[in-house]
Amino acid sequence: MSVLNEWAFVGVFLLLAPIFPILPMGAAWLFRPSKPNVIKNQTYECGVETIGDTWVQFRVQYYIYGLVFLVFDVEMVLLFPWAVAYNQLDLFAFGAGFLFIFLLADALIYAWKKDVLVWK
């Protein structure tokens, strides 16, 4: 149960954390002038009116980075328990973790050889 006690603190923190930025933003809302007009509220791009849809199609490159990152993220997550228990592991268990990293290093080498990680 003590785990939950600790996390109650995190919960309270989570509730309060947004209030810190909201307070100055709210204060600014009270004091600031507000005279919007059509021209002022236009999208600020380069002086002329913006053309077309903003949400244009992006390159597949970003998606590949996202995917590779996801794979590594999952690996890191699995690596943390191994690192925490590291001092109590025997050689076999250590080797298991080592192999795990090695297999993913392989994936990185593959991505490297296929040239997908180069920003084009």
């Binding site: 100055p24 004091f31 600031r32 509220n41 236009q42 999208t43």
Partner: peptide
């Protein structure tokens, strides 16, 4: 900064636009 006018573009997605600095 408190006295600065806050300009929200008409085209912006208001809720997410305001949520981003808070997050």
């Amino acid at each position: 900064l408190l006295g600065k006018e806050d300009i929200t573009p008409t085209a912006a997605d208001r809720i997410l636009y305001n949520a981003a600095p808070i997050i």
